[in-house]
């Protein structure tokens, strides 16, 4: 899916980005309205976790192990007597933070690299393209696992791992679109009247490739949330006892006979959020890059 998006975006000349398009994107289809609403709700849940969660997500109690759902604990408790609902609510924070921050960082770094390579060309471009192609040969999860294997867990390491996994894709699209924009008469004109290179890049190149980058960014937010969940499930992401949807499922698997709710709850959370972001991503693509909408 990732490589498909890259190929599609490379092939299409960049459009002019207009931010009032957001309205058209979100209100375009009923499914997108619903998706946007779902994302909004989850963001509110993540932000208000301290207020919304009925219990401390880390508080263990040997008197409350594996309780069934009840008015006190809506989804029951896990093998350590922790309130499952509270863990799911706090877990949404970690899932969303990594899902939103890492692709944004990757977009900034990837665009910088891609524009540099595409605009200046030469040996820098050849080297960079080579490295990007090599990295793109790896599925993002595998790349992330390989990096996490040698780096280890921890907040900043996870951010770094997910960011690095997405940089090659952004760089490739930024490079290809920069090459196209560079040919445009207005860039030639700007060069001819002696506008300095940094100004050309910031005023003429970057705004004109931004729509492709934004499309990729929304599509990959979903991928990043999935990636964080997978890494946390593997024990390479958010570290226990801190909850994230991925490691809640991991804990749940060790306690399947105790309670199915951690697995079901976290799984539904990931699926719904990823689905919603995918729908928004499709809608953004349809509006910003209509030609590849099919």
């Amino acid at each position: 899916m990732m490589s498909n998006a890259i190929q599609e975006l490379e092939a299409v000349p960049p459009n002019v980005s207009r931010f009032h398009l957001i309205q058209r994107i979100i209100l375009g289809k009923p499914a997108t309205v619903l998706a946007a609403l779902i994302v909004l709700i989850f963001i509110i849940i993540a932000l208000l976790a301290p207020v919304l969660a009925p219990y401390d997500p880390l508080a263990q109690s040997y008197l409350k192990i594996n309780l069934l759902p009840s008015p006190d604990n809506w989804l029951g408790t896990d093998q350590f007597g922790r309130d499952i609902l509270s863990r799911l609510i706090w877990g949404s924070r970690n899932s969303l933070i990594f899902g939103l921050v890492s692709p944004t960082l990757a977009a900034i770094i990837g665009t910088f690299l891609g524009v540099t390579a595409g605009y200046f060309g030469g040996i820098v471009d050849r080297l960079l393209s080579r490295v990007i192609d090599m990295l793109l040969a790896f599925p993002e999860l595998l790349l992330a696992i390989m990096i996490a294997a040698v780096l280890g867990g921890g907040f900043w390491n996870i951010i770094a791992v997910i960011t690095v996994a997405f940089i090659p894709g952004f760089a490739r699209v930024a490079r290809a679109t920069t090459l196209a924009v560079k040919q445009e008469p207005y860039v030639e004109a700007a060069t001819a009247v002696g506008v300095s290179t940094p100004v050309i890049i910031l005023r003429h190149i970057v705004p004109n490739i931004s729509s492709s980058i934004v499309v990729l960014l929304t599509l990959w937010t979903a991928s990043a949330i999935r990636l964080e969940a997978s890494l946390s499930f593997l024990g390479l992401g958010t570290q226990a006892p801190n909850p994230s949807w991925g490691n809640i499922i991991r804990d749940g698997l060790n306690n399947v006979f105790g309670s199915p709710w951690p697995i079901v709850g976290a799984g539904v959370g990931i699926t719904v959020v990823v689905l919603a972001f995918n729908l928004i991503g499709d809608a953004v693509r349809d509006v910003l890059d209509p030609e590849i909408g099919q």
Partner: peptide, 18 residues
Amino acid sequence: SLIGYAVPDFYLGALLLI
């Protein structure tokens, strides 16, 4: 395909296992 893109493989695996 929309759902297939969204469901994490380890989640589906856990459900099928259960």
